[in-house]
Design a protein around this nucleic acid. Structure first.
Lengths: 206, 206, 206, 206
DNA sequence: TGGTAAACGAGACGGTACGTCAGGTCTTAAT
DNA sequence: ATTAAGACCTGACGTACCGTCTCGTTTACCA
C-alpha cells in the first residue's frame, strides 16, 4: 500500500497525488527538525502548501498521517540483501546497516511515539509490525541460508532468533535514548553468534 | 529518591507530603482507568483533591509527573529474590512473575508513552533506566549465582544476558500491543537456557 | 460600527455574525445578573454557545468584548427626540428618561468598570465617548432649539451646558453608588434652568 | 482614621506600624508606575518587604488596601484654604490647584478603578465620598463666604453648586481619559461664575 | 461543450488541555 | 500574637491544537 486509501472515484475532481507526497515530505522534515511533540497538523499543512482539510480527508488522525509518512520513507530505505556465504559476515553487514538506518533522526525520534500511539490506536499496529518485520527480512533470509549450511540449528525458530538479534539493540536505544556505538553492536553480535551458531564464530581480531 | 525534589525549605510553609502521595495515587488510578491520552493534569488534581498549581510546583511537565508516580509505584512492586539452587528454576519463576507485573494495566498502558516521553525529554531517562534495571535486579543476582555454580559462562556479560532474557519479550509486547502468553514466555526461556547455559537445560516434559 | 471588525476575508470561511450577536446578548445578560467581576470569558462562551477561541479571535481583551456589547446595546436604547416647544419641558422629559435608561442593571453595573477599563486601555475611549455623546444628542438638539427661541444665551457652549446637565447626576451616582431619585433630578434641573436660561423657569408648583 | 483598624490588643506581639507605612508607600509607587491592573498583592508585599499575610490581616481585599493607601495620600495633599475676598479669585485659585493634584499619576490612574471597586463593594463608598468631599471642602468655605458677601444667591444649595464646579471637569477626565488644560478649566469657571454669581464676573482680559 | 461532483487552499468553528498567574487562606520557625 | 516566607486551593486567563465545517475556486469526468 503506497497511497492513502484512494476511495470511491465516482465523479468529481480526483485527488491530487502531489498532496500525498508533499504531506509525507513535510512530516518527515518536521519530525527530523523538531520532534514529535512540536509537530502539528497545521504546521504540516503549511509546510506542504496544503489545506488541513486535504489532510483529514486522507487520514483520520495525526498519528495515522505520521505512520503513513514513516512507512513510506522506510519502504525506500529497505535493506538490500547480502549474501557472503558466511552467516557471521552476512549478519554483521546487515545489522550494522540496519543500525545506521535507525539512526536517521526521523526514525529515532518517531519510533517511540509510534509505539505509544499504536498502544492507544490498535489500527496502527499493522503498520508498526510491517515496518519492523520489513527491516528484519534480509536477516531472516540470511538465517535460513545459515540453517541450510548447518551454521544454525534448524530447530531454532527463526523469528525468535531475529528477536535475539534485534531486540536487545532496539530496547537499549529506547530506554537509554541514545544510539548504539559500532563497538557495542559488534560485541552484541559476538554474543549472538557464540550462543546461536554451531561454530560459535567470533570476529577475527583486528 | 522517593519524593519530588523538595528544594531547600528556608522559611515558609513546608511542602505537604500528602500532596505527593495523593497525586501519585491519582495518576496511577487514572492511568489504569483511562490510559495516557485521556489523562489530564486537571483531572489528576481533582482526583487527588489538590490544586493544579501544587502539581506544577513539583513537576514541570505532565510527563515528569507521571514518570514520578510510575517510579514510586514500581518501588513497592519490586520482585522478591528467588533462589532455588537451579538457574533454570530461578529464571522461570522470576520471569513469569515479572511478566505478571508488567501486565498490570497501569504498566502496560504507561510504558510505551514513558519511553516516548523520555525520547523528547532526556531528563526522564534516568527514571526509565532505574525502573527497568530495578525489575531485572533479582534476575541479575540469579545469573551471578549461576556463574558461580558453572551453569553460565562467567565470560558472558551479565547485562547483555539480561537483555537477551527480557528484551525479546518486551519488544514484542510493544510492537504487537498484546502481552505474551505463558506458553510464549516458556518457549522463549527454553531458547535462552539452551543458548546461554552450559547445561542447555530444557524444561521437563509436562 | 456595529460589528467586531471583520477583517478582510480573502478566502477561508467567513466569520459567523451569529457569534457576535450571541456573545453580545450573553455579555449583557451576565452583566445584569452577576456584575462585572463575576463575568468570565468562559461563562460568556458557554452562555452564547460559542467557543472561547471565537471570542478571542474578535476581541483582544475581556474589556473590549464588554465594551462592544455595551455599545451595541445602547444603540437600540437611544432616546427619541422630544420637542414640546419649551426647553424646560423638553429637558425634564429627556433627562428623566435618560435617568431611567441608566438605571438598567447592565448600565449601572458596567459603566464604572468601563471607565476604569478605558483608563488602562485607551483604545476603549472612543467607545465610551461615543455612547455618552449618543445619549446626550437629543438634549443637544433641544438646547439648539432653545437658543433659537432665545431661551438660552447662544453664547453658551452647548457641550459645556450638556455637561452641567448630566455630569452632576452621573458623578453623584458614581461616587455614592446609588441612583438619583426623581425628586433629586427635578431639583437639579431647577437649578440648571435657573442658572442657564433667560427665563429662569422653575417647575410649576404641584 | 489614619491606620487600618488597630483591633483588640490583648496580649501577644503588637502590630508593627512600619508595616502599614511600607505597604502604603509601596501601593502608591506601584500604582504610579504600572497602574491598577498590574498591581498585585504579592508585588506590594515584596516591594514593602512585608509578608502577604500581614497585609490580609489589615485589609480584607486588595481594593480595601488600595483605598486606604489612597485616602492616606490625599490626606496630606489636602488643599489649603484660600481667602482673597473675591469668590472669583478664590474659586480660580482653588480649582486650578485641585486640578493639579488630580493630575498626579497615582490619582489619575486610581480614581476610575476605585469608583468601579466601590460599585461592587459598597463598604468602599465611604472612603470615596470622604476623599472627594475632602477635596471640595475649601471651595465649600469659599462658597459660604460668597453667599455672605452676596456674590452667590444663598438659596442655591452649596453641595449642588460644588457639583457644578467639579463634576463637569471630573467627568470629562474620566470619559476622555486625559486631563483638562488650564485654558479649559478657565473657560469652565467663566461659565460657572456667569451662571451662578450675581455679578456674573468674567475673568479680566489678559 | 457544458454540467456536476468532488477536490482544493483558506480559515472560522466548538471543544479541550495546557501552563501561568492572582487572590485569599493556612502553616511553619522565629521574634 | 505577631512577623516573613512560602505552600495551599480555587479558578480565570490567554494560547495552542484538534478535528469539523463552511467559503469561493478549480479540475476532471460525463452527458
Amino acid at each position: 500500500m503506497t497511497t492513502a486509501s484512494p476511495p470511491r472515484t465516482r465523479g468529481g475532481r480526483p485527488r491530487d497525488p502531489r498532496v500525498d507526497d508533499a504531506v509525507g515530505e513535510a512530516v518527515l522534515e518536521l519530525l527530523g527538525e523538531q520532534g514529535w511533540r512540536a509537530l502539528t497538523v497545521a504546521q504540516v499543512a503549511e509546510r506542504a502548501g496544503v489545506g488541513r482539510a486535504s489532510i483529514y480527508r486522507r487520514w483520520t488522525t495525526k498519528e495515522a498521517m505520521i505512520a503513513h509518512a514513516w512507512r513510506a520513507s522506510t519502504a525506500e530505505a529497505r535493506l538490500d540483501a547480502v549474501d557472503t556465504g558466511s552467516f557471521a559476515a552476512d549478519l554483521r553487514a546487515l545489522v550494522h546497516r540496519a543500525t545506521e538506518v535507525n539512526e536517521r533522526p526521523v526514525i529515532r525520534r518517531a519510533l517511540p511515539h509510534l509505539l505509544a500511539a499504536a498502544a492507544d490506536q490498535p489500527e496502527l499496529t499493522p503498520t508498526v509490525v510491517e515496518v519492523t518485520i520489513g527491516q528484519m527480512l534480509p536477516v531472516a533470509e540470511a538465517v535460513e541460508r545459515a540453517k541450510a549450511r548447518g551454521e544454525v540449528d534448524p530447530a531454532i525458530d527463526t523469528a525468535a532468533l531475529l528477536d535475539h538479534i534485534f531486540a536487545p539493540l532496539v530496547i537499549r536505544t529506547l530506554v537509554e535514548g541514545r544510539p548504539r556505538t559500532t563497538e557495542e553492536v559488534d560485541r552484541h553480535l559476538d554474543l549472538v553468534l557464540a550462543a546461536f551458531t554451531t561454530t560459535g564464530a567470533r570476529r577475527p581480531p583486528p
